[in-house]
Computed example of a mutant assay.
Amino acid sequence: MRKRNISIITRLNEKEKNHLATLVKRSGLSQEAYIRHLINGVVPKDSPPADYYAMMKELHAIGNNLNQLARKAHQLNVINVEQYDLAVKEFENAVTKITEAVILPKPMDK
């Protein structure tokens, strides 16, 4: 059974239909998902460039390598834990900000 079983018909002119189709295509969402985002008060962002996911994968690999190095350095007692923790937090914050800026939809202005 479908979660959404209510259908709403909306009439658009050719210009509005083309504009909606352009926005939907740029977002990478289905038309229905795009409209539901708008109804819920958020504007979907354009789909990220193709290399975005490759870059994020690389950043996550770097973070994983940092974690492995930290574990080994901690075992050998050759690391300043506070300084390392601060650097990792900065790295994680940077990844989060990039994700928010590129992927997450933004709330509509009220």
Rank of each mutant, 00 (worst) to 15 (best):
R36A: 04
Y34N: 00
V43T: 13
M55N: 08
V42T: 15
H37M: 10
G63T: 04
D51A: 12
Y34R: 02
G63D: 01
N40G: 14
A33E: 09
M55I: 10
R71I: 02
A73I: 02
L59W: 10
I39P: 11
V43D: 06
L66K: 05
M55R: 12
Y53S: 08
Y34G: 01
N64V: 08
I62L: 13
M55K: 14
A61D: 10
N65A: 13
M56C: 01
A73P: 00
H74N: 15
P48Y: 02
L59R: 10
Q68N: 10
H60T: 05
Y53G: 12
R36D: 06
N40H: 15
D46K: 12
A33W: 01
Y52E: 02
P44Y: 00
E58N: 12
Y52H: 03
D46W: 05
I62V: 13
A73H: 07
G41W: 08
K72V: 10
S47P: 00
D46E: 13
I35P: 01
G41S: 12
R36V: 10
A70M: 08
P44W: 05
R36T: 03
E58W: 00
R71M: 09
H60S: 13
D51P: 07
I62D: 04
A50D: 11
L59N: 05
A70S: 12
D51L: 12
L38M: 09
Q68Y: 03
Y52G: 02
N64Q: 05
P44C: 10
H37S: 09
Y34M: 00
L38F: 08
H37T: 05
V43G: 08
M56S: 02
K57L: 15
Q68C: 03
M56N: 03
D46Q: 13
P48S: 01
H37F: 14
G41Y: 02
K57V: 07
K45D: 03
L69R: 12
N40R: 15
A70L: 10
N64I: 04
E58V: 04
Y34L: 00
K45F: 06
L69T: 05
Q68S: 13
N65I: 00
I62Q: 04
A54R: 14
I39W: 04
N67R: 06
N64Y: 04
P44K: 06
R71V: 07
L69G: 07
Q75E: 07
E58P: 01
N40P: 03
L38C: 15
N40V: 04
I62T: 06
N67A: 02
Y53K: 06
M56K: 14
H60R: 14
I62R: 06
K72N: 08
R36L: 13
K57R: 15
R36Q: 11
A33N: 08
S47I: 05
N67Q: 07
N65K: 10
D46L: 07
A33K: 09
L59Y: 11
Y34I: 00
A50P: 03
A33P: 01
